[in-house]
């Protein structure tokens, strides 16, 4: 047997080398975004460009309209996160704290949507948004992004609210708080961890989603999100490799930062999916 110290050093070395290979595509992407188009091919494995070509970013941001895509992504993501979190918190509170008639049925219905076979639901979703007349507006994409039963979030909120002792609610009611005030002033602040988990998971989901914004912006380039904008960029400027890398960096770095700072909540949410 090896000494535990030696074993640790070996383990660290393996994990570091594997880790470097693991995220190498991202390193390559950032490095390419600062190269010239000639260097992109000519420089072999050299990661650091001779001159930093920041103009790749200017080109992506202005000429290729990534500024607009970025704005759309932010608006759609933030709005969806707010809608989904609020709606799920309200539902979870009602289900977790009040045994109203029909509560069991509601729970069954919500979980059932996870399992029943569905077809290609984006076609009817598209039709609904068209009938509401929201096709030419970001709100149409936001509505479509907010769709779904959000089973995991609801279950997280329900089980969290149901564990809060009833005495707390009684105390609030003695202090003169009504149902809504108790929820707003006492219960909601207690549920911060669940709110964080829901918000961060939905944030990452909406920011990265491709199919919904793709379908809803097929004929409306001005509504494109970063992922869809990136895809159309490839079609229009096929040989602008460094511009592609700059655009990809603009799209990926914000979400990576959000994850790095909020990862505890995100990972708890993912782990929650198997435990439920």
């Amino acid at each position: 047997m090896m000494g535990s110290r030696q074993r640790k050093i070996i383990l660290h070395t393996i994990l570091l080398i594997l880790g470097a290979i693991w995220i190498y595509p991202f390193i390559w992407m950032v490095s390419s975004s600062l190269k010239s188009n000639i260097e992109f091919f000519g420089s072999g494995l050299n990661l650091i460009p001779k001159i930093f070509h920041w103009e790749n970013y200017a080109r992506a941001w202005e000429t290729a309209q990534f500024s607009k895509y970025f704005f759309n992504s932010v608006v759609i993501t933030v709005a969806t996160v707010v809608i989904v979190t609020v709606v799920c918190a309200l539902t979870g509170y009602a289900l977790g704290r009040v045994s109203f008639p029909g509560r069991k049925l509601a729970m069954v219905l919500i979980t059932a949507t996870m399992f029943i076979p569905k077809g290609y639901t984006i076609i009817p979703l598209f039709e609904i948004v068209r009938h509401l007349g929201l096709m030419n507006h970001l709100s149409g994409v936001i509505l479509a992004e907010s769709a779904g039963a959000h089973v995991l979030y609801i279950l997280l909120f329900t089980s969290y609210f149901s564990t809060i002792p009833g005495e707390l609610e009684d105390a609030a009611s003695i202090d003169g708080c009504g149902f809504f005030q108790t929820f707003r002033k006492v219960m909601l602040p207690l549920a911060t961890p669940v709110i964080a988990t829901t918000a961060i998971m939905q944030f990452i989901w909406s920011w990265n989603d491709f199919l919904v914004p793709l379908v809803f912006t097929l004929n409306r380039p001005e509504l494109r999100t970063l992922a869809v904008g990136m895809y159309s960029f490839i079609g229009e400027y096929q040989t602008d490799y460094t511009g592609m890398a700059a655009g990809a960096t603009i799209a990926l770095v914000p979400i990576m930062l959000v994850f790095i700072f909020m990862q505890r909540y995100f990972i708890e949410g993912i782990a929650g999916a198997v435990k439920q």
């Binding site: 709606v87 309200l90 009602a94 076609i123 979703l125 609904i128 509505l143 769709a147």
Partner: peptide
């Protein structure tokens, strides 16, 4: 109050989940 609280979810659920599944 509980019914009021689940109303937004109910509207989203019927309109944007159940209806699309049926229509598909």
């Amino acid at each position: 109050w509980a019914y009021l609280f689940i109303t937004p979810q109910f509207i989203l659920f019927v309109g944007l989940t159940i209806f699309p599944i049926v229509m598909s």
